[in-house]
Structures are given as structure tokens and as C-alpha cells.
Design a binder for these strands. Structure first.
Lengths: 220, 220, 220, 220
DNA sequence: GATGAATGAGGATTCATTCAT
DNA sequence: CATGAATGAATCCTCATTCAT
């Protein structure tokens, strides 16, 4: 039994015990309804970005989305589900970009490839309002459903494939574990970098730094 | 000094910190009072650890501390101040241990020294209920007073002294910046490691991993 | 500079910096909501009248109004706003009656006209639960928004027109100032009279007294 | 049965039903204790004057007075009693001045005498921090014990004696009632005048105004 | 489906008063 | 006598959720 399985098992147990449902209530089929759902998550996003997570109330979401509060509960069973949907959406889009980029760099040597990846990652985080990714820290309840709420989850296997493609240049013994370490470290640094305002290091320097760190670690 | 001046002074003091005061209210003098203050922060700690941050209400703190709600406000102006005091306390104690350890390893070669440091760091984080360190992520308001709320702040100069002592073995150009990166990365990894339950890697392996990462990065 | 100056200055600054909003929160659109708003102010009125201002708590208002506490905050940002609305309402209705009466007496000679006005004033104060007018004394915070909270404000210009119409009989030099003095004095006396229970003077005597005072003052 | 008797009767009934004691707890005999009592009322006065009635808490009084909260309850049964004592003190001192002045003007003709009295009254109100006199409006509970809390009470008989001394110049039929009207009106106007900042009338003009009003009313 | 008025449990905070030291 | 730590009922206000229209 892998730890992943255990983890999922735990999450499921928790869900059962707390009785909280964070999934969508119904799949809207009518185009009007699709628009409403998007308006809701978009409103949530704007509020988090502009007014802070602590101001994210259901009434405010409805107001910004231009719908009645009641409509929120047509598509989401509760507030958490809205946040979850928003993050999933964001993560899904971001992961797609990362995977596309990785596939294009399969044939490129490790160091320049990593440099490009890092550049793209930074851009993706910025575009996708990285603050959303950090929101999870403020919602312990949601942490128990991380299945789809982390970019790594959606990119890990592609990442792995990428590294295996470059195995000739790499010396670490346990590739999956090393990959995980690099992934986390990289993302953490990007978050720290983006959180600084103004940054005390140029973007170019920062990406070089990130790349060097990964290359050194992987190739001794 | 006119009453107008007094008033402005008071108003300004109140306003400077965005209206929120997170400092202590009064210093307890009677031994009984000291016990109460400790009971309050200890209660807050236990609640965070056992019931989660979202259950940290003032009434619950008082209940667990075995005092009346009013007593909380004898020593702290508001709930945030309690949390701040708790974290400061924890951080201060942890930083003390780290510094002591570092001073003992000044003469030891880099790699074994780092190995010991990592071991000690992991132990310290575990002992000191590392969860507290992560609580800040859930309280954006407190992030604005990070002066004393981060272990790094209290250990950075000692860390720097340690690395300078080993300069012969180190190749990085900008030592302070590199140190900061290593500090953050190490702490982040420790937090991730401790957050896993159960960990999918042994403690020994994990510390080796940490040490290798730092050594490689510093010495190429 | 007198202490009065300092006091007022401080008070004003206090209000400005505290940024308290005493306006309505939203305009009810559904008829049900209109009823709720009225029920709230009416409940506040009844509590003040029957239980005293010190028993005017938000929970009690909700209870008497037969609604939940939350409903109070659908239409008013805070308790003060409820009181303000109640007083405004009362003042507005009372001022309307006064103005109507004055316009009807434009052609009547001064003394009989004043007599009728005083009679009507007393009746209006009694009907309109004059206690509400005195509540302001107990809420220093509201005193700073007296724009619409005083009957005089809404009747002063009509009063002035009335006196100018009778200028032939009047000898005072500065009509506006004299008017203000009479207004305040009259109202104050009415309040004192109504506050007595039981009064030690008949209503007829009292109105004669009021009229005489004004007539003597205006006509030497 | 005079209205005064009725009023007292009512007050006593109220006290019985509310069971509140507002008298001093014990008469301090030791000089140290006398100092403490004075420090307490003085502190209350300073707080009302500089920080507003809403900031008058027992803890703050003790703090400003430089004693422990407990000591307040050595000499006063509750907070109201402190306020009552403060007002009594102030009223008593003010009434003394007024009576002295009146006795000196027994032989002076009505108009110049009244002019001097008004001047003195205004000064007394200013000196004695007239705000204290208005505090009663904010404490309905205390209004029920006005026996000694109003300057008029302590000066009424002297006032009456003064007017009787000038009976030759006076035409009103019911002297006591007229006196009461004048007293109230005068005090009310002084309060309004002092509350204005800046006043829109000079002090001299104001006193002339007051005097004229009284003279006209009394002498036709 | 959509609305928005209504809800009320629950949270942070205050402050007059007590009582052990 | 004096102290000041402790108290807790009471207060204002919030906000996720429901449901009648």
C-alpha cells in the first residue's frame, strides 16, 4: 500500500466523518448556467486578489458575480466548494501549460531546458495569480482534498518523463524522490520571489539561480 | 502638554499599526498573574495543535486555560496578540537552541557539521511544535509584524558566522544570499517532511538528503 | 481657549477618525423588507419609551420587532444608525405638521397666532413621543450629525417667514437671532413641561405662559 | 401636597424597586482617606472632561486617581455613586457662589442687579466645567435622584428672596412659578451658549440678551 | 431557475464588581 | 486598608445557509 493510497484513504475517511461535500452540486447544461458558474468563480477570484481572503463572503461573491446569493447554492453545496472549484480551474489551466512546455523540451540538453522551464514556470505562476495557490494555507479544511489542487499532481509524471529522457546527465539514484524535492523547492522559491515586492533580485538572476540549483543537485 | 496633544498622541499610536495593537497589555507582577499568562498561551497552543486553528476562539482559550474570558484581555489587547505572543515565545526558544548548536560546531568540517545541524534542526522543529511556525500562513494580518516571528531572523547572523568560518570549503560568491536560500529551502523541506504522516522516507535518509543538498550547493 | 473648545474639537476629531457610518445599508425593495425596516424602528421606539434607552440593545430590538438580529444589519450598519433613522423619521413628521400650521396662520395677528402655534407645538411634541427628541443628549456620538435631527432645522425658515409677516408688531432688531432664542426656549419649556408627571400647572396656563413670554419678548 | 413632595415620593419608590444605592459607603475620617475620596472624584471629573463620559470606567478612574480599583469600593458602593458625589460637590460649590452674589445685590435695582447676576452665573458655569451639569442627561438612572444635583435647588429660596426684595418693580402674579421659568431658561441658554464653539455672539451681547429677557418678562 | 430577505448560532470584546492576598 | 487579578454576563456584530416568492 503506497503512501498515496493511504493518504487518499485518510482524506476520504475525513470527508465521511465531517460530512462536508465540496463537489459541485450539479453540472449545468444550459449555457446561461455555465456563465453563472464562471461568474461565481471569477468573482471569488477577484475578491481574493483585490480584497483578501478574509473578505471572501458568499454575499460578496454573489454581489460581485451579479447574481443572488441563492444562485450560489444552485451550483455549489457550500462556500468551500466554490473555492475548491476556483483553485482546481486555475491549477488545471496552469498544469496544461507546464506539460505543453515540457514536451517541447524533451530533446533539449538539461541545463538550457531547465532554464526555459523555470522561465515558463515563473511566468505561469505570475499569470495565474499565484496567490490562489497559497490560499490553501489559509483553509486547512481544503488541505484534506489535495487531489487536484496542486500543480505538481498534474505535472509530476510529465516531469518524470522529462528527467528520464535526460538520464544520461543525471546522477541521483532515486529519481522520483529527487524530483519531488526539486519540484517543491522550485515552487516554494517562486512563491517567495513573487511575494516580495519589490524584489531584491532581478528576474534573470533569479531564474539563473533556480536553474543552477536544480542542475547542481541533479548532476553533482 | 495640552489635552489635544495627548489625544493626538494616543490616536496616532492607535492608528500607526492600522488600528490594531498586537502588543501585550500589561506586565503581570504577581506570581498568580504570570501563571495566568502562561496558561493562556499554553491553552492557545494546545488548541491549535489538537483542535486546529479554526477552533481557536477566545472562549475556548479561556476554557482550556481554566480562566474567565476577561482574563485574556487583562494581558492581551485582542486575540491576535495572544497568537503573536505564543509564536514569539516558541520562535525565541527554538532560535536559542539553534544558536547554541551552531557555536559548538564552529571548528567542525562543513559536511559533518551540517549533518549535525540538520539533525538538530529537525529535532527542534519537532519539539517546538512546528505547526505553530506555519500558523502565520493562516493569519495574513500577523504577517505584517514578522520582525520576531521567524526563526531565521534570530539565527541568520550566527548562521553567517558559521559559514564564514568554513569559507575555505565554500565556492559561492554571494554568501548572504546563498545562505538565505539554503535557510528557506531547508526549513521548507523540514516542514514538508514533518507534515507528512506517515513520512514516506526515513528520518536518516531525509537528513542525508538535506545535508547533501546544502553541501553540493555551497561547494559545487 | 476654553475647555469647551477643546472638548468640541476633540469630539469632532474623534468622529472623523473613527469613520462611523450611520447611514442606511440598503433600500428595501420587496414589500416584506419595508415592513421589517418599519418593525425595527418601531421596536426601537417602543423600547426607548417603555424600557428606557439603557435597555435598547440590538437583541432586544430584534426580539420586539419579531425578527432575527441579523435582519437589523441588513438595513442598518450598526445600532446608532437605527436610532438615527428613528429620530429622523420622527423629526421629519413633526416638522411637517409645524410647517403646515404656520402657513395657515400667516394672516392671523401675532398673539392669537402664537397661542395657536404653541398649542399645536405641545400637541405635536406629545404625539410624537417627545422623549425621542431628548435621546440625543444620551448619545453624544449622534450629536455630531444634527443635520436632520432637530425639528428647528426643518421649521426655521418657515418660522422666520411667519415673523417677517408680522414685522409690524415686532420690535426686536435681529430677527433671526431672536427667533432662535425663542425656538430653543419654547422647546425647552415644552420638554420640561412634558417631563413632569404629573404637571403642577394646567395645560392652558402653560400655553398662556409660553405665549406671553414670546409676545413680551418680541413686542417689548 | 407640593410637587416637590410628589417628586421625592416617586424617587423613593424607584429606588426601592431598583434597589440601587447611590450614597457614599462610609464617611472617611482619616485624612489619608479623605485624600483618596477627593482623588477619585477628581479623576472622574478629569476623565469626563478630557476623554468623554463614555470612557469613564471604574478601572480608568482608579488608574487616573492613582489607586487600585478595589479602593473605589471602599468609599462608594458603585460607579453611579462616584458620579453622584462628583456632581453634588460641583453643584454645591457653584450654588455657594451664586448665593453669596445674590445676597450682595439685595439693595441694587433690578436691572443692574440681574446684569451682574447673569455675568456671575456665566462665569460660574464656565469655571465649574458646565459639562458636568449636562452629564445628567446621559445618565437617566441618576435623574431620579435630583435632590441635590441641580444648582437651582440650592439657590431657589435665595432667588426668591431676591425677587421679593424687588417686588416693587415686578408685575408677575405667581412669583415662584415665574422664577422657575426664568431659572430654567437662563441656565438652558447659558448651556447652549457655552456649548457653541465658536459662539456667534459676544459674551457681552449674550449677557445683555439674558438680562433683557428676564427684565422684560418680570416687569412687562 | 433565480432571487434576496431572513436567520441565529457563534465570535470578539468590555467592564462593573468581588475577594484573596 | 489597599491592591489588582479574576470574573462572566452582556453587548454588538458577522455570515453561511435556507426558503418563500
Amino acid at each position: 500500500m503506497s503512501s498515496a493510497t493511504q493518504f487518499l484513504g485518510k482524506a476520504m475517511k475525513d470527508e465521511t466523518s465531517s460530512g462536508v461535500n465540496v463537489d459541485r452540486r450539479k453540472r449545468p447544461k444550459q449555457p446561461r448556467a455555465v456563465g453563472t458558474v464562471e461568474a461565481i468563480t471569477e468573482a471569488a477570484k477577484q475578491i481574493i486578489l483585490k480584497e483578501g481572503y478574509k473578505n471572501l463572503t458568499t454575499n460578496r461573491i454573489a454581489e460581485v458575480a451579479g447574481v443572488g446569493v441563492g444562485s450560489l447554492y444552485q451550483y455549489f453545496p457550500n462556500k468551500q466548494a466554490i473555492i475548491k472549484a476556483l483553485i482546481e480551474e486555475t491549477v488545471f489551466r496552469a498544469a496544461g501549460k507546464v506539460r505543453t512546455c515540457l514536451r517541447m523540451l524533451m530533446e533539449v540538453p538539461l541545463e538550457p531546458a531547465l532554464h526555459q522551464i523555470m522561465t515558463m514556470l515563473l511566468a505561469t505562476y505570475r499569470e495565474n495569480d499565484f496567490i490562489l495557490f497559497r490560499i490553501l494555507d489559509q483553509i486547512p479544511e481544503l488541505k484534506e482534498f489535495p487531489q487536484n489542487l496542486s500543480v505538481e499532481i498534474h505535472t509530476h509524471s510529465t516531469n518524470l518523463a522529462f528527467l528520464e529522457q535526460h538520464q544520461a546527465e543525471i546522477v541521483v539514484s532515486d529519481l522520483p524522490t529527487s524530483l519531488m524535492l526539486i519540484e517543491r523547492t522550485t515552487i516554494h522559491k517562486i512563491e517567495c520571489f513573487l511575494a516580495q515586492d519589490p524584489p531584491n533580485i532581478t528576474e534573470g538572476q533569479f531564474i539563473d539561480e533556480l536553474t543552477q540549483m536544480a542542475v547542481k543537485y541533479l548532476t553533482r
